[in-house]
C-alpha cells in the first residue's frame, strides 16, 4: 500500500509536467490542425533558459529561493515565449497556405535546428543544477518503507493546477480565448468578424511556449540534470498524452499527461523499467482502438 501510494505521488508529479507540455500540442493542433514537432524542443529551450537564469541569479547573490524561483519562472516564460513566437513566425506562418505536409516537415526541421543549436551553444554534456527546492514530508511509514512527499513534488502539482486554472479562464472567459475558439472553427469567418487570425495563432504559440517553459523549469528542478536531447523524449510523451486525452481538448491534454505519467511510473515500479515506454505507447494504441478520438476528444464531423 505504501509503495503504491509513493508511486501514485511520483506519477502525478511526472504526469503534471507531461500535461503542461501536452497543452502546447493540443492548442496548436486545435487552431491550425498541425502537429508542432518542435514543441518538445521549445520545452528543452525553456529548461536551458531556466538553468542559465538560476546560475545567473545565484552568481548575483540572490539566495532567497522563493524569490529566485519566481523571477526564473516569469523570465523563463517570457523568453521561451519569444522563441515560440519566432519559430511560428519564420517557419510556419509563411507556409500556412501551403500543402498539408509542408508545416509538418518544417516542424521536424525546426526541432532539429533547436536541438543542434543548443548542442552547439551549450555543449552536448549533461548540465547539472544543484538542488534548489529541497526537503519534504514523510507522510507515514509502513514497516521500513517511508512514503515521502517532497517539496518539489508539491511545487510541481500546485504550479500545474494554478496554471491550468488560469489557462482555462483565458480560453473560456476572455476575448482572446473566444477568438481562438472561433479561429478553430472557421478561420475565414473569424477574420471577417474582425479577428486578426495571424495574431491569434501567434498568441497560441506564445501561450503554449510559456507553459512549456514552466514544464522545463519544473523538469530541471525535479531531475536536476538536463541536456539538449530531453525535448525529444518528453515531446513524444507529451504528444502521446495529447492524443491519449483527445487532441484539441485542453482537459484531455492534462488528463492524458497524468495517465501517461502514471502508467510509466507504475510500470517501472512493478515491472521492468526498460519497458516503461513500451507500456505507455501500447496503452495509447489500445485506447485509440476503443476511443479513436482519444478519451475526451470530440468526433471529427465532416464539413459539408
Amino acid at each position: 500500500m505504501a509503495y503504491f501510494l509513493q508511486q501514485l505521488i511520483n506519477g502525478i508529479a511526472l504526469g503534471s509536467i507531461y500535461g503542461l507540455i501536452a497543452i502546447g500540442y493540443t492548442m496548436v493542433y486545435g487552431i491550425i490542425g498541425m502537429i508542432n514537432f518542435a514543441h518538445g524542443d521549445i520545452f528543452m529551450v525553456g529548461a536551458f533558459i531556466a538553468l542559465i537564469l538560476f546560475l545567473a541569479l545565484l552568481s548575483l547573490g540572490v539566495t532567497m529561493i522563493p524569490l529566485a524561483l519566481l523571477i526564473v519562472l516569469l523570465l523563463a516564460m517570457v523568453l521561451t515565449a519569444v522563441w515560440g513566437w519566432t519559430v511560428e513566425r519564420i517557419a510556419y506562418r509563411p507556409l500556412r497556405e501551403s500543402f498539408r505536409l509542408a508545416p509538418l516537415i518544417t516542424a521536424i526541421g525546426m526541432s532539429i535546428v533547436l536541438q543542434n543549436f543548443i548542442q552547439v551553444a551549450q555543449g552536448a554534456r549533461v548540465k547539472p543544477l544543484q538542488p534548489v527546492v529541497t526537503g519534504g514530508y514523510t507522510l507515514f511509514t509502513e514497516g521500513d518503507f517511508a512514503v515521502n512527499l517532497s517539496n518539489i513534488q508539491i511545487l510541481i502539482v500546485v504550479t500545474t493546477l494554478v496554471l491550468m486554472t488560469v489557462f482555462w479562464l483565458i480560453i473560456t472567459r476572455t476575448a482572446l480565448g473566444r477568438s481562438q475558439r472561433a479561429c478553430e472553427q472557421d478561420r475565414l469567418m473569424a477574420a471577417l468578424s474582425g479577428v486578426n487570425v495571424d495574431r491569434t495563432i501567434s498568441l497560441t504559440f506564445v501561450l503554449g511556449a510559456a507553459l512549456a517553459a514552466v514544464a522545463g523549469l519544473l523538469y530541471l528542478l525535479y531531475y536536476g540534470v538536463i541536456d539538449f536531447y530531453i525535448g525529444f523524449v518528453a515531446g513524444i510523451k507529451a504528444f502521446t498524452a495529447a492524443v491519449f486525452g483527445g487532441i484539441g481538448s485542453l482537459p484531455g491534454a492534462m488528463l492524458g499527461g497524468l495517465i501517461i505519467g502514471l502508467i510509466e511510473t507504475f510500470w517501472s515500479a512493478y515491472f521492468t523499467i526498460e519497458y516503461k515506454d513500451v507500456a505507455a505507447f501500447s496503452m495509447l494504441a489500445i485506447v485509440l482502438i476503443f476511443f479513436p478520438t482519444g478519451l475526451l476528444g470530440r468526433p471529427e464531423v465532416e464539413k459539408v
Binding site: T174, A175, L176, R178, A182, A190, S193, G194
Partner: peptide
C-alpha cells in the same frame, strides 16, 4: 461558430474592442 453559444458568437464579433480594452488579455 457552431460549437460556441449564441451569445459567444456575438462576443467574437466584438473581439477588437475587447482585446484593446483588455490590453491583449
Amino acid at each position: 461558430f457552431q460549437g460556441m453559444t449564441v451569445l459567444e458568437n456575438l462576443m467574437v464579433a466584438q473581439h477588437n474592442v475587447l482585446m484593446r480594452a483588455s490590453g491583449l488579455t
